[in-house]
């Protein structure tokens, strides 16, 4: 019984809220989404994993290739060592897919989305606040991965007499591009996640689009590949973290044209996600 009397006295004892003017808007939604993402271990660990896996694979790859190559420094310099130095992005993109997916699907898996939308029923605020937070975090983590991979890689190639630095031809754009590519992977997954509301399904679609599609196209007739290949998300997006833009088959896009095509996939997914998030019962 003591609990009850306590409750009553405390209830009336709550300090009244200061009066508020205006409306609950985008700023509050942004702060809220930032709190959400930093306060669960799964997102923090996913991002840590993205960095460790990507930079780790890049380092191993560079070390292995640099120590086993029989090519001369001049021959090596003709290759796209910048892109090669960031090889870990190939795996890192999958972890970024998981991050982008979880940012939205975990709300559905736990039911939190209903609590979120009760606090802020203006759904566009919630969607775009999440989108901004995911974009910024994935960008920062992506750039950490690409810069760390590249800078570590340059040391291995230096032992082979190749002088590689951010001022090398196209290097800076490609390294920044590496982070952008990873950001795009997270955004693609976020959009798909908002549309599907299901973690495993979203990750499957993300992996399919970024990985499996390329494998399937490889089994198509050469003449088809020439037309299709450059439009595949990974191939189009891959141009932005490369310094050389001639694909094996067909003609590749330039760095930014390729990135634009790649981002189109993300934008389509994000629009589909927006539509579902706005319209469908939560």
């Amino acid at each position: 019984m003591s609990t009850i009397t306590d409750t009553r006295s405390t209830l009336t004892g709550l300090t009244p809220l200061p009066p508020a003017s205006g409306r609950a808007g985008f700023g509050g939604a942004l702060r809220s989404e930032w709190t959400k993402i930093r306060s669960v271990k799964s997102t923090v660990w996913t991002l840590a994993a993205a960095i460790i896996i990507s930079v780790g694979i890049s380092t191993l790859g560079n070390w292995g290739q640099a120590s086993h190559t029989s090519l001369s420094a001049a021959d090596l310099a003709r290759r796209d060592l910048v892109q090669r130095s960031m090889f870990g992005i190939m795996l890192g993109q999958l972890v970024m897919v998981v991050f982008g997916a979880l940012a939205i699907t975990s709300e559905y898996a736990t039911g939190m989305v209903r609590t979120s939308l009760t606090a802020q029923p203006r759904r566009l605020h919630v969607y775009f606040a999440k989108l901004v937070i995911v974009t910024v975090i994935a960008f920062v983590v992506g750039e950490i991965i690409s810069f760390a991979s590249f800078l570590i890689g340059t040391h291995f190639w230096a032992t082979k007499g190749v002088d590689l630095s951010l001022s090398s031809h196209g290097a800076l754009q490609a390294v920044i591009g590496g982070g952008l590519y990873l950001d795009g992977a997270a955004l693609l997954a976020f959009g798909v996640g908002a549309a599907l509301r299901h973690t495993a399904g979203t990750i499957t679609v993300g992996v399919f689009l970024l990985f499996v599609v390329s494998i399937i196209v490889n089994f198509m007739p050469d003449s088809w590949q020439a037309d299709i290949d450059k439009y595949l998300p990974a191939n189009a997006g891959g141009q932005v973290w490369a310094t050389q833009h001639t694909a094996d088959v067909g003609t590749a896009f330039g760095a930014w044209a390729g990135f634009a095509v790649y981002i189109c996939y993300a934008v389509i997914a994000l629009l589909a996600g927006l539509l579902v998030f706005k319209r469908k019962d939560a």
Binding site: L17, P18, A24, G27, G28, A119
Partner: peptide
């Protein structure tokens, strides 16, 4: 906290 922030609550 994340709920309070959406409505600018102290």
């Amino acid at each position: 906290l994340c709920l309070a922030q959406t409505n600018n609550l102290p």
